[in-house]
């Protein structure tokens, strides 16, 4: 973990409520896709955790959905402004388990952390399949960006207005060596049940500190209590205990 003052390079909307922010700063503490940064915003006491979408040198890309005061404030920030971030938080995905045909499953703003992951897996020579789920055509983002990386991409929308009608679990490939999922909990649960191979799932939680001190986001797993912010947000399929 490292505290970094980033400078905003770009901040543009991708859809009606999803934006992309590109920052410049010291990315040295960020070591794996699936990790997040925790942002200090004016007038808010707790930092706001946002997953890393992409990283290249000192450029860091974050994609966030405007859901409350913190993310609304982020949307209104302009290039040249600075952001105080705690970086390199969370465990991130373990790429060594991917095999040669990994499957990446993203729902809504669960898609962004899969982008840097896809990039890294493709660079290692894997044939990457990406399945993205959104509510409607207007919510879709990064479909082309994933394709441009060289991934095989299919999209589902709940209302059928873009791609196939349904959920990511309706457009699964026949087989995969391992899967990586990120999205809302109902989606993660559906993926967990639908995909027979081993996988890693990234969870969301309301966090206090974001670095493991406050026990504000602990969940129970088969391998013991885990802090989503520190021991997660990525959990191995075999350790997950669903609460209902």
């Amino acid at each position: 973990m490292k505290q970094v003052i980033y400078t905003i390079l770009e901040n543009e909307p991708l859809t009606a409520d999803v934006c992309r922010m590109v920052l410049a700063g010291d990315n040295s503490a960020i070591t794996a896709p699936g990790q997040f940064v925790n942002l200090k915003l004016d007038g808010l006491f707790l930092r706001r955790p946002i997953s890393v979408c992409d990283l290249e040198g000192d450029r860091l890309t974050l994609i966030y959905k405007v859901v409350g005061r913190g993310t609304a404030q982020m949307r209104d920030m302009t290039p040249g402004q600075t952001l105080d971030a705690l970086t390199g938080l969370g465990n991130g995905y373990d790429l060594s388990l991917a095999g040669n045909r990994p499957l990446l499953l993203g729902g809504g703003v669960g898609a962004p952390p899969l982008y840097w992951l896809a990039k890294k897996l493709i660079a290692r020579g894997a044939a990457v399949a990406v399945r993205l789920g959104f509510n409607a055509a207007g919510d879709v983002f990064y479909e082309d960006e994933f394709r441009a990386l060289g991934a095989e991409v299919r999209v589902a929308t709940a209302d059928g207005s873009h791609g196939e009608k349904g959920f990511v679990t309706d457009i699964l490939p026949d087989a995969c060596t391992h899967y990586f999922a990120c999205g809302p909990e109902p989606m993660l649960k559906a993926v967990y049940r639908a995909v027979p191979s081993d996988g890693q799932l990234s969870f969301e939680a309301r966090m206090g500190c974001g670095f493991g001190a406050c026990m504000g986001c602990t969940c129970e797993t088969i391998t013991g209590y885990k802090r989503i912010c520190r021991d997660g947000p990525v959990l191995r399929k075999g350790e997950i205990l669903w609460t209902d």
């Binding site: 707790l46 309301r206 026990m215 504000g216 986001c217 129970e220």
Partner: peptide
């Protein structure tokens, strides 16, 4: 184990836990 989640909420100039 403690309480179920969520355990944390933002508050004006502070937080609830």
């Amino acid at each position: 184990l403690g309480n179920p989640l969520p355990r944390i909420a933002e508050a004006p100039a502070g937080m609830l836990n």
